[in-house]
Write a protein that binds this DNA or RNA. Structure first.
Lengths: 216, 216
DNA sequence: GCTGAATGTATACTGGGTACACAAACACAC
DNA sequence: GTGTGTTTGTGTACCCAGTATACATTCAGC
């Protein structure tokens, strides 16, 4: 049995992933040390000991070296709604998943010094903030489709768009406020409490907004 | 009495505004004809008969030639909450203002062929969409501060952030869906109805989310 | 080994944005 | 009028992300 997380037997693929990781590690180290905006792609290539074009081979944009796990977030949201209990509303389903993610210490809702540094890196760069906003919009689109599908409506349903917009707004604010709380309190539990309290409030609002629709 | 909208007496200022408008007009014409991404700043400078640096003198970024009225939007939001009737909740106050803006045919919520073309230009450009998202975040910040101030809370109040996030999400979705409706129906009244219906739903949700706080 | 596809790389280019230095136009004083 | 300091316009030179392209290398599969 091969561990699915171990390098694949294929040598070409192994080398490819090694190169990618070398670039990612070099970039991370440089970004942390000097900040995203003050590192050039040439320097990353130099530090990773590859050619400049190789960097763009693995990461289409410089920002992708920071946000290289956004697909996981999309998958979490899709997965949460895929096999939903029909007795529980889609909005409530997502609220419970948020609680479960916190309980499971999932990477995206873990409040630690590492995540604090990550958030700080993003906060310090206009380019990274722009990318974060774009990812947020992509997530909203995913939630819109998943919501509509889970109740058998068309993915262009305006109510699905509104519900997804309200939920994404909620999670974004909860995420940011959770990290602000962690920064001042230095206490993961307090940060989680802030995060979940806001998620619950937002879910309550979304349920009320969607009253009379299948989403609530 | 000098009309405040007429050119100021100061010749220097008059010339400055004339140059700015020449650039803005030239840019608008080129963007509409070929799309934002397929026009270079050099071409705009050429068309406006000014130097390249002069363009950047008036518009810090290329996108600013498209979004040159974002300050008005901020002012509308600040103004709506500034002298609020204490008997009406801040969220309800903003909901009513949205209705009033539609009734007054305010530029930001008017559904016409011109606005349709504008929305299309933005939709076709990743750069412009990124700027639109950034402006949305700036508006959320304005609403956060205005909300907190209108109820005498600190501008860092997490509830204010959540309320503002919910409202901005609502208006964004309503704006987009309103324009989608206009594109298919070619009827401003139907588009306005879509817009206002979503604004009302979102407001209802925001009130529910903020139950027990001064914002609702 | 042969062959074709991935992968890595150098070179050259496009275009937005910045730094800086300088010239012209102008308001305001005298 | 004549200076004088400031605003505005402008050219030059630069930085850096991102693209196109052509070429070399490495590997998998036959």
């Amino acid at each position: 049995m091969t561990d699915p997380t171990s390098p694949p037997a294929d040598r070409r693929t192994r080398k490819r992933l090694a190169t990618r990781q070398a670039i990612s590690l070099a970039a991370d180290r440089l970004f942390r040390a000097r900040g995203f905006e003050h590192v050039t792609v040439d320097e990353i290539a130099e530090a990773a000991d590859v050619g400049r074009m190789t960097v763009f081979n693995h990461f289409a944009r410089k920002e992708d070296m920071v946000f290289d796990r956004d697909e996981e977030g999309r998958e979490i949201l899709r997965d949460a709604l895929r096999a939903r209990d029909p007795g529980v509303s889609p909005i409530e389903t997502l609220r419970r998943r948020a609680h479960r993610l916190v309980a499971e210490q999932a990477p995206f809702v873990r409040f630690s010094d590492a995540s604090r540094a990550f958030v700080q890196t993003v906060e310090d760069s206009e380019t990274l903030k722009a990318r974060a906003r774009a990812i947020r919009d992509e997530l909203a689109q995913v939630v819109t489709s998943a919501l509509a599908e889970s109740v058998g409506r068309d993915p262009t349903d305006p109510d699905a768009h509104l519900a997804a917009g309200l939920l994404l707004a909620t999670w974004t604010v909860a995420f940011v406020q959770g990290h602000l709380t962690f920064r001042t309190m230095r206490n993961p539990e307090t940060a989680e409490a802030t995060f979940l309290a806001l998620v619950d409030k937002g879910a309550k609002g979304a349920e009320a907004a969607m009253a009379g629709t299948p989403y609530a």
